[in-house]
Design a binder for these strands. Structure first.
Lengths: 190, 190
DNA sequence: GCCATTTCTTAAACCAGCTTAACTTTCCCT
DNA sequence: AGGGAAAGTTAAGCTGGTTTAAGAAATGGC
């Protein structure tokens, strides 16, 4: 239990004492992943919420053209899950995979309920986290409606230059909803 | 205080006693809107969360082409807000408008915090509501990535046939991200 | 440090969905 | 009930972004 990104993250929104932090860790699994390891595959139930302590995850599904369509990334300090599958205990249509060597914290569904029971303040933390996720989704949706693919790419790469360095180009293309060939063309243009 | 959609909705996730329901109502404004009345306009701060008791709301922004781009609808039993503006106290880029005569409950930002303080169980309710909203956003995003506009329209109209009846076609087109002309063409085809 | 694999590039042909513009139908207000 | 405005339709021409295919460059595992 080296670093402490999660308590630090939680501490931004609520205050936990030592006992509560211990309870938190009692309900969390910590483990590391290699590049390309999977946390979730299509057909499985998403039984955990995943928190990225170190590294980077991507979420994708296999679309009708049988290619991988990336829908989300998660860097350090981000939560990731298929919430539909997690809440409804249903088979997921997504894959969650490590892009880099990563350290992950996982809260399993049953432990999650126990944890919220034992430390009700965490309801507030997760309420705020989820509210921020909804705000982000609203924002992304607006950008997609308002910008051409070209503008969207430039917007994204100037907003998250470090990210562009860190992740292969074809994944960025997939996430932004354009082909790697077209992204390559856009890069040449400018 | 005629009907009680909100307590009914809350009751699906947590149990409130009479006192708590009273506290709830003490922190909520109830009012009605005519067709085309606004709850929020671009430039204003979104100071409330809105709950649709009766009627229908739409959320939109003015895009680069200076046309209204609808990003969300809210029917009876749904919450709507610009969460980014609500959380950050910043100017909104959106409009929220009634499509029909509607009855709305509004929880203002300050009252919201008071309410959560007085009835902490509501943190849980809102956590779950927000989690479901995130799940929906994930789902919609997947559909958009995976379907052509034509498929997306057919999917939507077979999933929500009542809704298609209730809302003008050009608003459906806007929400689905296609032009009214193209939607008209699709309807003719089938 | 090397080689297989993965990632990125280039360019031409193509198409889903948009634009424009003019017309028709429906709705809503008094 | 009637008229003006709002909503829906039609069709032709156009374009942003995809597809295909093949070659070039970069990467990371051993």
């Amino acid at each position: 239990m080296e670093k402490q990104r999660l308590p630090e993250n939680i501490g931004r929104y609520i205050e936990l004492n030592e006992t509560e932090i211990l309870t938190l860790y009692k309900n969390v699994r910590i483990f590391s992943l290699n590049r390309k390891d999977f946390l979730l595959k299509e057909g499985q139930v998403c039984n955990s919420l995943f928190f990225v302590e170190k590294g980077c995850l991507r979420m994708f599904f296999i679309n009708k053209k049988l290619t991988e369509q990336i829908t989300q990334f998660a860097l350090e300090g981000w939560w990731m899950a298929d919430y539909f599958s997690f809440m409804g205990n249903t088979a997921s249509e997504y894959y969650i995979q490590a892009i880099e060597k990563s350290t992950i914290l996982a809260v399993d569904r049953t432990k999650f309920e126990d944890l919220l029971q034992e430390v009700p303040k965490l309801e507030r933390y997760f309420r705020i986290i989820m509210q921020k996720a909804v705000a982000s989704a609203q924002h992304r949706s607006k950008l997609e409606f308002d910008m051409s693919k070209e503008e969207f790419y430039h917007h994204f790469s100037s907003s998250f230059p470090e990210f562009i360095q860190r992740v292969p180009q074809y994944m960025v293309a997939s996430y932004l909803g354009l082909t790697p060939e077209y992204l390559s063309e856009l890069r040449k243009k400018k």
